[in-house]
Simulated scan of single mutants.
Amino acid sequence: MKGGKCMDIQERIKQLMDTKGWSEYKLAKEANLPQSTISHLFKRNNAPTYPTIEAICRAFGITMAQFFADEGEAVVLTLDQKELLLLWGTLTQEQRQIVISTMKHFNNND
């Protein structure tokens, strides 16, 4: 993400929402933020505060470094993410499909 412009941040949030299939309401719920906060980001072109971005990152399960990383740029993983990757490497292809299916199921539940 070049710069740090408000529009870049909004675009990144929108990209993450699209990836997960989340609405503004779902993001607000998952980030434990008022829906008006998320709505104002897009409708009023408000720049999010640091705590808001932090809450959004937690909701998406990513670090701030991952949020602001340019495409292809190396990012630092959290301990939980590292553990998941290590465990992933020990699974069979069939087990991986089960995990993916389960995670998609959890992701789609409100």
Rank of each mutant, 00 (worst) to 15 (best):
M1N: 12
K2D: 13
G3R: 07
G3N: 08
K5Q: 15
K5M: 08
K5Y: 13
K5S: 15
M7S: 13
M7F: 04
D8N: 12
I9A: 10
I9V: 10
I9R: 08
Q10Y: 11
E11H: 09
R12H: 08
Q15G: 03
L16C: 01
D18H: 07
D18Q: 13
T19R: 08
T19Q: 01
K20C: 02
W22H: 09
S23T: 14
S23A: 06
E24Q: 09
E24G: 08
Y25F: 15
Y25S: 15
Y25P: 07
L27K: 04
A28E: 01
K29W: 00
N32I: 03
L33K: 01
L33C: 05
L33Q: 01
L33T: 00
L33D: 04
Q35C: 02
S36Q: 08
S36T: 08
I38S: 13
I38T: 00
S39G: 07
H40L: 05
L41N: 00
L41A: 01
L41S: 00
K43T: 11
N45M: 14
N45A: 15
N45S: 15
N46T: 02
N46W: 04
A47T: 10
A47Y: 15
T49N: 11
Y50A: 06
Y50N: 07
T52G: 01
A55E: 00
R58C: 02
R58I: 05
A59P: 00
G61A: 02
A65Y: 10
Q66A: 14
Q66M: 03
Q66T: 11
F67H: 09
F67Y: 03
F67L: 00
F68L: 02
F68P: 01
A69N: 08
A69P: 07
D70A: 08
D70P: 03
D70F: 03
D70G: 06
E71F: 05
G72I: 10
A74P: 11
V75W: 10
V75I: 14
V75R: 02
V75Y: 15
T78M: 10
L79K: 15
D80G: 10
D80V: 11
D80W: 14
L84C: 13
L84M: 14
L85I: 06
L85F: 05
L86P: 01
W88C: 10
G89A: 03
G89I: 02
T90H: 14
T90L: 14
T92F: 11
T92C: 05
E94I: 15
E94R: 05
Q95A: 09
R96K: 15
R96S: 05
R96P: 02
R96T: 04
I98W: 13
I98Y: 15
I98N: 09
V99M: 12
I100A: 00
S101M: 07
T102W: 05
T102A: 13
M103S: 05
K104C: 07
F106L: 06
N107I: 11
N108G: 15
N108H: 15
N109A: 04
D110I: 12
D110R: 11
D110L: 11
D110K: 14
D110V: 05
